[in-house]
Design a protein around this nucleic acid. Structure first.
Length: 236
DNA sequence: TATTGATCATAT
DNA sequence: ATATGATCAATA
């Protein structure tokens, strides 16, 4: 029998953050056991397992629904795998791209801007030499991008969107974009999605998504820790 | 070894 | 087949 059943959605941002904070310092195995879930030995065949665990443990809206994860609060949940030194192991997936329509979308109404407006980051040990069940949960961070962040993300988004919009999606590589990049987001390399070519004609191409580079999220987490230790100093 | 391109599971 | 949750693994 599970010791805890699935919690109700949190009623406020503070309640959500408090709930997430209680998980800090514990292992994924601890949390999974509370809900009678079994951690896989590794994530090769369960890449979304950590994210799903936290959706469940924090009372996120059902997986079937559209984002944000906490609809009533307008908060997006992101687990982020980190090394022992706190630096992210991976980039962070933001959203898939409507390759046929993004050329006529403005930044202010973009999915990237909306999804990143409020994010609950949960750092989790992500090194592959640690079994999933033994991986430690870090201190959560409730984040909104600074004005400088928004400006920088907008610059990347507009550049990348323009390339897609003008019909050069096939020229895009993961190299483009300072903080935001475009990479495949598909079941495999044969997947196809509707896009447009340089003549504006409809083509079938690889589905792609926006991702945040690890360097960008590293900065977010680093600033978080810096502020945390500053507060700690003042308390002493 | 950091990064890009490829891939895996589940639910709808 | 698409959307959401991401990490894997080959490459540079």
């Amino acid at each position: 029998m599970p010791r805890d059943s699935r919690p109700e959605p949190p009623v406020s941002e503070a309640a959500l953050f408090a709930r997430a904070s209680e998980l800090g310092g514990r292992t994924l195995g601890d949390v999974a056991a509370r809900f009678d879930l079994v951690p896989p030995p590794d994530l090769r065949r369960a890449k979304g397992w950590v994210g799903h665990l936290f959706e469940y443990a924090l009372g996120a809206t059902a997986r079937s629904r559209a984002s944000p994860d906490f609809e009533a609060l307008g908060i997006e949940l992101k687990t982020i795998p980190v090394r022992r030194d706190g630096i992210p192991c991976e980039s962070t997936f933001v959203c898939t791209i409507d390759l046929a329509g993004i050329g006529s979308v403005e930044w202010d109404e973009s999915l990237v801007k909306r999804k990143l407006s409020r994010v609950l980051w949960i750092p989790v040990a992500g090194e592959r030499d640690v079994p999933v069940a033994a991986r430690t949960i870090g201190t959560p961070l409730l984040w909104s991008p600074s004005e400088a962040d928004v400006a920088a993300l907008r610059l990347d988004w507009e550049e990348l969107s323009a390339v897609i919009g003008r019909g050069d999606v096939e020229m895009l590589t993961g190299h483009l974009g300072r903080h935001l990049q475009v990479r495949p987001k598909a079941a495999d390399a044969r997947s196809r999605r509707r896009g447009v070519d340089r003549d504006g004609a409809s083509i079938a191409t690889l589905p792609r998504g926006f991702y945040l580079r690890a360097q960008f999220t590293a900065k977010i987490l680093a600033e978080h820790f810096a502020i945390g230790s500053q507060r700690h100093d003042r308390e002493m």
